[in-house]
């Protein structure tokens, strides 16, 4: 009898024993890129939220990684509904996530340049207001060392002389009320993976309107290229001024004001 009770207890406990591992591994869709890191990154970035690969999400990049220290990537999720987060990551980079962006009052578009430490899947993931994640990406072949070679500014030795220089411009877009903001920084974006050079990177950036309304904010990681360049589409009318503030891991603040030009959208920038 006592033995029977013990078995019953054991059976009752079984689901408990299974549950934690089942929770830790939600059924993510099969990875079309068959990356060895897909499940690990999915767990980290998506957690329990639903995920699907979706062709409406466009992750755009050139056909050749000409420079593994600076690979251009654009993530375009316009037309899929209300987007709350946009993440650009490379599965096999030692620092996988490059940018985690919240387009609060902005078109869901972000372009930047990232480091590639080897041949790797490069992905864009977009979260809708419903919680659903949409993912796109592809394998990119690259020579090694984008994350583990010293930045050019460290080799030439002039990085400190230009630290904090920001350049930028903003243009009205064809879409009513939207602008196109380009902003560049001089910053070494040290990964911490080069001998005797500790991590030193811009880690956050925000774009606000003149009245202080948050238009877009992002976390940046050291897998963003040296001298970061970022393109966003915040909602701002011609004549408005955008206020950009960023911080790096040493606590330095970078601030800039960029007026949205009053002229009409240029032909190239107005392209959908």
């Amino acid at each position: 009898m006592a033995r029977c009770r013990f078995l019953q207890l054991l059976i009752a406990m079984l689901p408990l024993a299974i549950a934690p591992s089942a929770l830790a591994q939600p059924p993510y869709p099969d990875d079309p890129l068959q990356s060895p890191m897909w499940t690990a990154h999915a767990r980290l970035i998506f957690g329990d939220d639903p995920v699907r690969f979706d062709p409406r999400i466009q992750l755009l990049y050139p056909q050749v990684a000409e420079n593994q220290r600076s690979f251009p990537v654009a993530l375009d999720a316009r037309g899929v509904g209300s987007v709350t987060r946009m993440v650009i990551f490379a599965d096999l980079n030692p620092i996988p996530i490059a940018i985690d962006y919240r387009p609060d009052l902005a078109e869901p578009y972000i372009a930047t340049r990232i480091k590639l430490d080897q041949r790797t899947p490069v992905r864009g993931a977009v979260q809708l207001a419903s919680g659903q994640w949409l993912v796109a990406g592809g394998w990119v072949d690259a020579a090694g060392g984008g994350c583990s070679a010293p930045p050019v500014g460290r080799i030439t030795g002039d990085w400190a002389a230009h630290l904090g220089e920001m350049r930028g411009e903003a243009w009205p877009m064809g879409t009513q009320g939207s602008s196109r903001l380009r902003i560049t920084f001089r910053h070494p974006m040290d990964t911490g993976l080069v001998a005797n050079i500790p991590t030193y990177a811009i880690e956050e950036m925000s774009v606000r309107s003149e009245s202080g309304t948050m238009l877009g904010q992002m976390a940046l990681f050291a897998s963003v290229s040296e001298d970061p360049a970022i393109t966003l589409m915040p909602r701002a009318a011609p004549g408005a001024t955008l206020s950009i503030v960023a911080h790096d891991t040493n606590g330095r603040t970078y601030a800039a004001k960029v007026p949205v030009a009053r002229q009409s959208a240029s032909v190239l920038a107005a392209q959908p």
């Binding site: 050139p62 000409e66 904090g164 350049r167 902003i183 601030a255």
Partner: peptide
């Protein structure tokens, strides 16, 4: 696309105006 990689950062430094404010 290779040429974009070679020339774009230099052209940005030439054509985009400085916008940073003193720390």
């Amino acid at each position: 696309q290779r040429s974009v990689s070679h020339f774009y950062p230099g052209l940005e430094a030439k054509w985009l105006p400085r916008v940073d404010m003193p720390e």
